[in-house]
Design a protein around this nucleic acid. Structure first.
Length: 484
DNA sequence: CTTTGCGGGCCAC
DNA sequence: GTGGCCCGCAAAG
């Protein structure tokens, strides 16, 4: 099966996925049949994108996503619909000992997720908090999968407005690591036990008082790290990583069971000014795959050997916000403030001055209304109703996500082309205004007026939005290889 | 136990 | 009708 490979991007017009080059919508009665190629699997799709995967692509078959997507019943057995669950963070937005941030993958199962949210931050004992996804006009980003012939059609609607959780493989790797550690600790305990037993026969000092369970090992749902600076560096999807430069750090200290390794301070990063909504924008100076060690390095041999084409994919998010900077609506189901105060010995309550543990768990901080600005108005909903069905193939959102240094110089050169294209109405089927409204609404935190240079970059982003659907991950590998 | 997919059902628009 | 979401069920790992 042919995959989209570098050569298809050789000419400067080849800017998007194969799926975006064709005109189709997931709801179309007839999808494109004469497919000449397939897209390579995208783990971190973001934005209004479409891909066409090979029916033999394992990841596509499993409807995988880096985001935590849950099945949503759309009463259409032809189309599998999934909606994003967001990300679980520490409600205090505490900084981990190594400067990272907690970003867990929400459990997909409702029950498991509820259990997960009852847990406390391993670092500061604050409650965990689920940041719901509102990237699709106030609703969660949705992914659609449809098998048609030998192809798997994928369409995503919405722009994730939250940090990335750890990827599925990371979560799984961590779980298996915890399991292994547990079993090995049990083994070592048994061994100690035996030794102690032996010792008791050899001397009188053999007691078990020094045998304790390994602390901080109360479950696999622990730490997903992002680097300080409020930019989630979604850790590398293990199977994509073929180097293991940080192995010596693993399991050394503190949260070893959660595979929190010591992050190198990423001095090679530049930071943007805070946006009015308190979002940081991160411009990776360069993407060194080695800068983002996995939380836990699973032996490669034990990982599924899928036909992945992405290697060394440094992943960062663009818009990272701490939970206190987000507005939270009345979705009380997402919150666990009770736990904050229920936790005995919780010292620093003054930190919660702005967090009202009200009975309904409803929390809205007027200080950070940006998210609410995106609440879907009836008018907007109408727009969505009309736009979700049309013209995604031509979607060229107006920007404001900042994605620099993602493509090489040619990217910048293409900006002119794009600008011309837009002004010349090259995308006649694009409902610009509607889509822009939707996107502006969805982006919310990105609504600041970009400077000219920012616009340039932003235009690049959106022109390459599909290419960079790994969420501003600075994912140049595909396209730089392709001479993007 | 968790994930995943399916499907019934409810509600809002 | 469409879309979001809740729930339960079952299969699979």
């Amino acid at each position: 099966m042919s995959k989209v490979s570098g050569d298809m991007y050789d000419d400067s017009d080849c800017i998007c996925s194969y799926g975006m080059k064709l005109t189709w919508d997931i709801n179309d009665p007839k999808l494109p049949q004469d497919l000449k190629q397939f897209d390579s699997f995208q783990e971190w799709t973001d934005g209004y994108v479409r891909y066409i995967y090979s029916g033999e692509d394992k990841n596509a078959q499993r409807h995988l996503s880096g985001w935590a997507m849950r099945n949503t019943n759309n009463h259409n057995c032809q189309i599998l619909k999934k909606s994003c669950l967001g990300v679980v963070v520490c409600s205090r937005n505490c900084t981990l000992p190594d400067g990272g941030k907690l970003q867990l993958r929400p459990a997909i199962c409702d029950k498991a997720r509820q259990k997960q949210q009852k847990k406390l931050c391993n670092n500061c004992n604050a409650a965990l908090e689920l940041i719901p996804c509102r990237g699709h006009s106030g609703y969660p980003v949705t992914n659609f999968w449809r098998l048609d012939g030998k192809a798997i059609f994928f369409q995503a609607k919405g722009v994730h407005d939250h940090p990335r959780p750890e990827s599925k493989s990371e979560t799984e790797a961590r779980r298996s690591a915890v399991k292994r550690q547990l079993s090995s600790s049990h083994l070592s305990q048994k061994k100690k036990l035996l030794e102690s037993e032996v010792g008791r026969y050899n001397d009188s000092g053999g007691h078990f008082s020094n045998i304790h369970p390994i602390p901080c090992l109360d479950g696999p749902e622990r730490f997903s790290l992002v680097s300080e600076g409020s930019f989630p560096i979604a850790p590398q999807h293990y199977p994509f990583q073929n180097t293991d430069p940080f192995k010596p750090n693993y399991g050394t200290v503190g949260y070893q069971s959660e595979s929190v390794s010591t992050f190198p301070k990423c001095s090679d990063r530049m930071y943007m000014q805070r946006t009015p909504c308190g979002y940081d924008f991160h411009v990776p100076g360069y993407m060194n795959p080695n800068s983002y060690p996995p939380l836990y390095k699973e032996p490669m041999g034990s990982l599924p050997d899928c036909d992945r084409v992405q290697l060394n994919t440094p992943q960062t998010n663009l818009g990272m916000l701490n939970p206190h900077e987000r507005g939270f609506d009345g979705a009380g189901k997402h919150h666990g403030w009770k736990q904050i105060f229920a936790k005995p010995g919780y010292a620093d309550r003054s930190d919660y001055g702005q967090i009202q543990p009200n009975a309904g768990h409803s929390y809205y901080n007027p200080e950070y209304p940006c998210r609410y600005a995106r609440s879907p108005s009836p008018a907007l909903q109408t727009v969505i109703t009309t736009t979700t069905k049309v013209s995604y193939q031509a979607y060229k959102p107006p920007v404001v996500k900042y994605a620099d240094n993602v493509c090489d110089v040619k990217t910048l050169q293409n900006y002119t082309h794009l600008q011309d294209s837009l002004s010349e109405g090259v995308f006649p089927d694009m409902k610009a205004q509607d889509d822009f409204s939707v996107i502006k609404s969805a982006l919310g935190y990105q609504e600041q007026i970009p400077t000219k240079s920012e616009r340039l970059d932003n235009m690049d982003f959106y022109k390459y939005g599909q290419c960079m659907s790994n969420g501003f991950s600075g994912q140049p590998y595909r396209y730089e290889n392709a001479d993007c």
